[in-house]
């Protein structure tokens, strides 16, 4: 018990150990629910729900009727779980910053590169998240839904996606960090 407690209170595990845990989660998802892990699709399900309520005509298309049907899907519930799981993880290592002063912008490296203002972090997060979600829509999944879930079934799409993601990620990081690379 003491050992387990000590491990749980660590802020960072070896990525290999955490990866093994995720691997088992991926297996269980298929075994128990015949579903794949995915986060970005859930946002589209939710967006479809809101869209159908506000502007039914604009959302009455092939994509929101068949590809990503709106509603509280398995993925939406999974997303809720991910959120609280992350919080539990932070709480066990006492790094949960809910309600604390620098909670919304606490990353030192980010502040060094972009400046200390919190609104900048939120603005960039908003724009970047639009990019992420739109890209996930084009590709058919995000890091979890396509790269990991697809990869574990050896789907070619997943490896194409990973290649693209790294190619442009490296270039973007190069541009942002320039000589600080």
């Amino acid at each position: 018990m003491g050992w387990l407690k000590k491990q749980l209170s660590k802020e960072l595990w070896s990525p290999y150990v955490a990866g093994i845990l995720l691997g088992f989660v991926g297996i269980l998802a298929v075994l128990l629910s015949n579903a794949l892990l995915g986060a970005s699709g859930a946002f589209e399900n939710l967006a479809g729900m809101i869209g159908k309520a506000i502007a039914p005509n604009a959302f009455d298309n092939l994509y929101f009727n068949f590809v990503m049907p709106p509603g509280i899907t398995w993925g939406v519930v999974l997303l809720v779980g991910i959120f609280f799981g992350g919080m539990v993880g932070a709480a066990t290592s006492r790094t949960l910053k809910w309600g604390k002063k620098d909670a919304s912008n606490s990353d030192r490296q980010w502040k060094r590169i972009f400046g200390p203002q919190t609104w900048k972090r939120w603005a960039l997060g908003f724009v970047g998240a639009i990019l992420l979600e739109y890209a996930a829509g084009i590709a058919g999944g995000c890091t979890s839904g396509l790269a990991i879930s697809g990869g574990m079934l050896l789907v070619p799409a997943a490896f194409l996606f990973i290649a693209g993601m790294f190619a442009s990620g490296i270039i973007t990081a190069l541009i942002i960090y320039r000589n600080r690379y």
Partner: peptide, 10 residues
Amino acid sequence: LGLFFGFSLN
């Protein structure tokens, strides 16, 4: 499963 997913990511 989501709980464990989020936990491992964290």
